[in-house]
Nucleic acid binder design. Structure first.
Lengths: 206, 206
DNA sequence: GTCTATACGCAGATAGAC
DNA sequence: GTCTATCTGCGTATAGAC
């Protein structure tokens, strides 16, 4: 339960790590301040001493999560790679990250309901702008490389196909894989290739 | 708040309607027994008299929801229509239903986390069987109509593309549509055509 | 800064009169 | 069956000693 390896590391960071772990596993509602305190090896009172309340602690974690994910995606979008290649990279980044943090989707979905503007602001502040993506897609369409499409439909489809399976995992693994975890892993790994080829095939101009 | 139109209708049904409305709006955690009681025009005690506890009441609603949705999908799958046409019908059914009940995804996602086996049992009892779907797809592949694919990838993609946008709506509508509800509606309406053509294009044998 | 003990509020559930 | 009043437990948050 308690595992403080570097004792000299300051408590704030320890709490942060504990909170990240618990929030990611249980989501906002499921997370208990007591559990976070235990995980950090302190008591609830001290937890509230450092972070006034649950909401503030949560936001701090969520902010951190967004700050590590968004720049990666942003960099790819800004790059001068071809559209199809961008899709491949983004898919891989997304799925790899979700594999390591299987509870992230529920975490995000919760936050999407309660603080959508927070996420959107973050995206925009980091320079991720729908109109930019649209412009890039348009360029390739004009070159005759891609079919004419509403980029928003493609965008929404991409993130849906990456994120949703993790949220629905408890059901899918039963329904499609007889609760075989290894099969599920293989499925997810294959998905990294399936999604890009699925999208690219569909958008290919002919 | 209270709106009992047919007074002679028995209370159980009234409670059921109230509970459906509240659970769909607020999800399991967000729903309050008090609110359901108010909506039904009774008090909490009576609520517990009819349905012993919150969990039982919820399951009753959830069961009803599955019973109306699954048979529709099942019927389409059983039918002798072509694969591409089935995708069209299922997409339309799904999205139309989600449009009317925008909170259903959160509702389902909650249940997927806590009682996955309940959903899977229901699916199987109603004759929806992955191997059947697979067999159908395989037939068309052998006829040279479709490309060789893992049907599970397609299946998961289909439901992801239909359901996830509704769960992520609060964010998407801000990010892509400047909170313009009419634009969102148009987007969703177009999605009924986009998804099938997206899938069918991608799977087409060439 | 860190602890123990406790206050407070909420929501689900029940007792018991009618 | 239906109500009012109340219990209970839990989880966040705080008071106050050290």
């Amino acid at each position: 339960m308690v595992k403080i390896k570097e004792k000299d590391r300051n408590i704030e960071a320890t709490i942060h790590n504990a909170a990240r772990s618990v929030f990611l596993k249980k989501g906002y509602d499921g997370a208990r301040m007591q559990e976070i305190a235990d995980e950090a090896g302190i008591n609830k009172a001290l937890l509230h001493y450092y972070f006034r309340n649950k909401e503030k602690l949560f936001m701090s974690i969520f902010d951190e999560a967004l700050n590590t994910l968004i720049p990666k995606i942003g960099a790819v979008i800004q790059s001068d790679k071809r559209f199809s290649e961008k899709i491949e990279i983004i898919t891989d980044a997304y799925i790899s990250m979700l594999k390591q943090n299987p509870y992230l989707p529920m975490f995000v979905i919760h936050e999407v309901q309660s603080h959508p503007e927070f996420i959107v602001d973050k995206l925009q502040n980091m320079g991720i702008d729908p109109s930019k993506i649209q412009k890039q897609l348009k360029t390739e369409v004009e070159k005759g490389l891609l079919k004419q499409v509403d980029f928003r439909q493609v965008f929404v489809s991409l993130i849906s196909m990456c994120i949703f399976p993790f949220a629905a995992k408890p059901m899918l693994i039963k329904f499609l894989f007889n609760d075989n975890e290894a099969e599920w892993d293989k499925f997810i790994e294959e998905r990294k290739k399936f999604i890009p080829s699925f999208i690219n095939e569909s958008l290919k101009a002919r």
